[in-house]
C-alpha cells in the first residue's frame, strides 16, 4: 500500500516536471523551423514547398474532435478563398492513433477523400511539429507570413469566435489576420484562445 502511494506520488511528480519543462512553442514573430510530413496521398510535404506564396495557414486538426467537425467547412472555405491569394492551407493531425483510433492515418485518408480536401492533410506521427508550434488543441490555427526565405508566425488561435454557428461569428480572426497581411498592415488580433479538444499526446 505504502509502496503503491510512493510510486503514484513519484509518477505524479514526474508528470508535473515533464509538463513544466515543455517549451511553450512559437510566439508571434518567431521564425518557423522547416518540417517535412507525410500527406494522405503518401507523398512528403515540406514547409519549403511553399516558397512561392505569401504565407501559409497551418491548422492543427483531426478527424474526431467535435470542434474540428464543426469547423471543417470553414477550414475548407479558408483554403478556397486564400490559396489563390497566396495563403494556402495545410492541415496537420498530431493525435496519437493509440489514444484516438479514429485519427489513424487510414482514417485521415478516408476523411480527406470523403470531404474532398483540396489541401494537404499531414500526419505528425512523432508529434514533434505540434510540439515545436506549441499546438494544444484542435482546431488550432497558425497563420505564417513569408519574410524573405523565412516563415514568421503572424497569428495564433481560433478561426472565429463562434464554434457552434459560423454565421453568428462576428469576429473572423484568421480572415482578419490574412486580410491585414495582404494589405501590408499590422494584424490587430494576433492571438486568441478557444475551447477545443486537447491534442492526444503519446506517453501520457
Amino acid at each position: 500500500m505504502k509502496i503503491h502511494s510512493i510510486a503514484s506520488t513519484l509518477a505524479a511528480f514526474s508528470l508535473l516536471i515533464f509538463f513544466a519543462g515543455r517549451p511553450p512553442g512559437y510566439q508571434i514573430g518567431d521564425t518557423v523551423a522547416t518540417f517535412k510530413l507525410r500527406n494522405v496521398d503518401g507523398k512528403m510535404v515540406s514547409l519549403s514547398d511553399y516558397q512561392s506564396g505569401k504565407g501559409l495557414i497551418v491548422v492543427f486538426d483531426c478527424n474526431t474532435c467535435p470542434f474540428s467537425k464543426a469547423y471543417n467547412d470553414r477550414i475548407q472555405a479558408l483554403n478556397k478563398k486564400y490559396e489563390p491569394q497566396g495563403f494556402p492551407l495545410v492541415a496537420i493531425n498530431a493525435n496519437s492513433p493509440d489514444l484516438s483510433p479514429g485519427d489513424s492515418f487510414d482514417n485521415m485518408v478516408a476523411q480527406a477523400k470523403r470531404e474532398k480536401y483540396d489541401f494537404p492533410y499531414l500526419v505528425d506521427e512523432s508529434q514533434d511539429v505540434a510540439r515545436a508550434f506549441g499546438a494544444s488543441n484542435t482546431p488550432h490555427v497558425f497563420v505564417l507570413k513569408k519574410a524573405g526565405n523565412d516563415f514568421k508566425v503572424a497569428y495564433i488561435g481560433a478561426i472565429d469566435n463562434n464554434s457552434r454557428d459560423a454565421d453568428a461569428a462576428d469576429k473572423r480572426y484568421v480572415e482578419d489576420a490574412i486580410q491585414a497581411l495582404l494589405a501590408n498592415k499590422p494584424v490587430t488580433t494576433e492571438r486568441t484562445k478557444a475551447i477545443g479538444c486537447g491534442i492526444k499526446w503519446k506517453n501520457v
Partner: peptide, 20 residues
C-alpha cells in the same frame, strides 16, 4: 459563453483552451 476568447484568460493566462 461561446465567445471563448473573452473569458479563457480570466480563468488562467496559461490556458490554451484544451480540456480537460
Amino acid at each position: 459563453e461561446i465567445d471563448y476568447n473573452t473569458w479563457i484568460d480570466k480563468v488562467d493566462a496559461s490556458w490554451q483552451g484544451a480540456i480537460p
